[in-house]
Amino acid sequence: PETRVGRFGYKVTFELSSKDSEIFKKITQQLVVPESAIGSSSSKEKRLAIVLDDVVQFAGYVISVIPDGKAEITGNFSLEEAKQLAAILRSGALPARLEKISAGWVAPLLGSDIVKTSLWAGIIGLFVVLIYMIFTYGVQGIIADIVLVYNTFLLLGVLAATHSILTLPGIAGIIFTIGTTVDGNIIIAERVREELKSGKSVKAAISSAFGRCFITLFDANLTTIIAGLALYYFGTGTVKGFAITLIIGVLGSFFVNIVLSRLLTDALSSFIRKPAVEERGAQS
């Protein structure tokens, strides 16, 4: 089935297989109704119905015999109505029946308000985290902020590329990803501080810190991914949306913490200073 623009709005065109064309021809011969008779009481009994799962999805008139299985459905459809009808025709061609797993309902205005509130909560939380990291960790806080913003855009880019639908649990997964990314950078920053306090140079402290943090971050992210896979496999509906954003976000978090954060830390190593306590001890 295809959706096209017709003279009186959008229309849906479809083509049957060769073995079904002859059957469809006989059906249309029995149901042909002259345009002048459309709407009369006798013609209503001749309407051709499209049925999916024992429910009539559409019923229209046949105005001419269709001998080759190529037909079009017109009716002053809007674009969305035409797309929906085409989707119904495609669904009817599937070898398996559709089975309803779960359903949810929320009013449009309420749903819109919830989405906006959730997005603002995520944005405000992101800015609070960015400011906190700068004041607490200085240069390494700035690096953590860059890594955090990069991972957020990376996650959104993957969702856009895969045409994923962003649900409320999906937004929650993105906000959770912000926390995991920051946690990784805090572990690295604290480890660098400890290495500096032990008397190592900045370069040596960075190398040692990332080397020791790798296994910690790998294990922590792996266990979270396993939990996400379990949610995706056993969950239904919107729970899977949370699981998808969680898995993608954690994978991106591990990548940016180990790769991007290391590159930025090495590049800005000249701005990293030893803790004040260590500097006073050296002077005395």
Results as ranks from 00 to 15, higher is better:
G39R: 02
G122F: 00
A121E: 03
S270L: 01
N185Q: 12
D219H: 11
E190K: 02
E72Y: 05
V33A: 08
F24K: 01
L148Y: 08
G122M: 15
S17W: 00
K19E: 15
A172C: 05
S18K: 12
D113I: 02
R7L: 15
V65N: 08
F58G: 14
V147G: 14
L264C: 09
N221V: 13
E190H: 00
P1M: 03
S78L: 10
L166R: 09
L246W: 01
G241I: 08
L168N: 06
S269K: 10
L89K: 09
L98K: 10
L126N: 05
R90G: 03
V259E: 09
T74D: 15
S198I: 03
L79M: 01
D113E: 13
I272C: 01
I171Q: 00
L148I: 11
R191K: 04
A107R: 01
P34E: 03
V202G: 13
S253K: 11
K274G: 09
F214H: 15
F254T: 11
V256D: 13
I272D: 03
P169E: 03
N76L: 06
G184A: 03
V106N: 05
D20V: 00
E278H: 05
G199K: 07
Y61W: 09
S64H: 07
N185H: 13
P169R: 00
A107Y: 06
P169F: 00
K116D: 07
E80C: 07
P67E: 11
G249Q: 15
F218E: 15
G9C: 04
L196K: 14
L126P: 07
G138C: 01
L16R: 08
L196A: 07
G237E: 11
M133G: 04
G104L: 03
